[in-house]
Design a protein around this nucleic acid. Structure first.
Lengths: 343, 343
DNA sequence: ATGAAAGCGCTAACAG
DNA sequence: CTGTTAGCGCTTTCAT
């Protein structure tokens, strides 16, 4: 008799709370959402009932009513690059700060795949879409009224938000630093952009080299991965005429390059100095540790979420990268290697 | 005069479709969900209307009605370890296969933080929760009727699903392989489990060493990160009496150890051989490439999602790891290093 | 084979 | 300050 089981959390409804607190259902909503002034006693009674029952507002009902899921969606490139993990983590944190969840999906690295993933996300009712594309010209058609943002994007794209780092500046920082170390001939290991269009890091390298009266070293283009860097470095070595320094478009590629150099007994930085891009965690623990261009991930994540939630007109946001000196560029150890100097 | 704008996708409702197709709203649902036999003509008419209008069923309404969000939630440890990125990617793929989305949140690495994140996820109405914990005994209270699963978990935990790899077996595979290379004294670089309780990899090392009549080398415990591995290796080196081989609890730690060895001119595998754990992508491009114990991520991701969606009683699922031979253990290059042998 | 209708739990406008 | 009420868009039972 009366052995009604303690209800599971998800089954307690607002009406149950109202009944127990002796108020109307609306009042419960007022308390939960703080939308209305109520007497302290009422508020307390309702809160008691909520606690006693373990009431949790039903999210689906709220979404249906509000027309917003308070959720963002992100599609990540099909890569195991730690950089994207850190980027999506930054986005998740920023979204959580603003009370939003983040639905993550992985693309297959094709333009069609990305579009399909965005579509599924839109069908799930997210309030905004973020695309970290791995293709040069992603499919950016509209998804109803949901805003779309291209993250990790340098170029301006009409009609969508973009957030990225100033690749041109980053490349210049890298090349200038190498020049400061006395290198006069600087090579480029660039990433492969699927449609073969220019990458701003490449432009930055070109400009910095000419601005400083340096010489262009050999150029290689390969996929943005350790495998790509390894392959490219092997080709470069076979071709001979290696320069004394390289600017590399990503840490992952630099890691691959490092392995190729090791295999050939080429010492870094003594024989060849390297500055790469992204500052992934592992770059501090490679041998030698990689000097690299760091991206302000937290700021970029916040900017992305803000842009999507603000309802503002799409615009391009570019962030300022910074140089992290480590052994690979020729700097002494212990400055920014993320590990205590070896004593 | 009839200048009603083409409605945005999210504004088209089932009633609009019904009106255009000249059927009742219910029929539209039947077509969308395939729950009922209908005449081909009706089906076609409805599908036409759906296409014409760009109709998308409203997810929130569906969830409300169904009592299911068709979404899973996962909380990831606060680490930049690529292993967890691959693991969550595997889960996302498995979830997508079953028509579910994945809400990802990052924890701060504390037990309370994890519990709070799980709670927020539960409040968002996910159908199931996955926790990749970074503490030894995570807070696993019930979340209403939502099932909870511990991913990357070896030990059985009462009342919750667990999915993990057989750490004991993995450790034995590693130690045995090192023994096959002729090593008689094998050290251990273990991960730090926050409550200081035993890690099965450690037990596996102990057992394998004694089963094969080997000698226990020095033991170090540190955080599961490159920084941890670096620190531990430095201590080990200072203490002297280094063994000829180490089993290392994670690739990240091994990467840090490798850097310490490089700094001290200790050659791998000539002076010291290494086998580590996880098979993260970068392990194939370190110098030397790391021999490691690989985890069947895709299978684990599927198992996790299935367990959560099946409604079955919680149980423990353990997967079989496998050895990936690379240069660091003493094997010749080119077998499994993820890169062509250097010619 | 198709349609009518009853909610799912919540928010907010409006009334008291 | 609090209560009543009308939906949000959908699934599904029960008629027809």
């Amino acid at each position: 008799m009366g052995e009604r089981a303690k209800p599971v959390a998800s089954t307690v409804t607002r009406d149950d709370v109202a009944r127990l607190a002796g108020v109307s259902p609306a009042v419960v909503s007022y308390v939960v959402n703080g939308t209305k002034r109520l007497t302290p006693e009422t508020t307390a009674r309702v809160n008691d009932a909520i606690a006693k029952l373990g009431y949790r507002p039903n999210r689906a009902a709220r979404s249906l009513r509000l027309g917003s899921s308070e959720t963002l969606g992100i599609v990540l490139p099909d890569t195991s690059n730690a950089f994207f993990m850190m980027l999506s983590q930054a986005v998740e944190l920023a979204a959580a700060d603003r009370g939003h969840g983040l639905l993550v999906v992985n693309s297959d690295g094709t333009r069609a795949g990305e579009a399909a993933r965005l579509d599924r996300l839109a069908a799930r009712g997210v309030d905004g879409l973020i695309l970290c594309s791995s293709v040069a010209f992603p499919d950016v058609k509209a998804f109803g009224s949901r805003p779309l943002l291209l993250l990790n994007q340098y170029e301006r794209v009409h009609g969508v938000h973009t957030v990225g780092v100033d690749l041109l500046l980053g490349a210049k920082l890298a090349v200038e630093h190498l020049a400061d170390h006395g290198h006069r001939r600087i090579g480029l290991l660039a990433g492969e952009t699927s449609e073969g269009d220019p990458d701003a890091r490449e432009t930055g390298w070109v400009e910095a080299v000419s601005e400083h009266g340096l010489q262009r070293g050999p150029v290689a283009r390969e996929r943005f991965s350790a495998a790509g860097g390894y392959l490219a470095a092997q080709r470069l070595i076979e071709d001979g005429a290696l320069p004394s320094a390289f600017f590399v478009a990503s840490d992952q590629m630099a890691l691959g390059m490092l392995r190729a150099f090791h295999e050939h007994g080429i010492r870094v930085p003594e024989d060849i100095a390297i500055v790469s891009f992204d500052n992934v965690p592992d770059s501090a623990y490679s041998w030698p540790p990689l000097a690299t261009i760091a991206q302000p991930l937290a700021a970029m994540g916040s900017a992305a979420v803000d842009a999507l939630l603000s309802g503002e007109e799409p615009r391009r946001r570019l962030f300022v990268p910074s140089l992290v000196r480590r052994v690979s560029c020729g700097c002494p150890p212990g400055e920014g290697d993320g590990a205590p100097a070896h004593g």
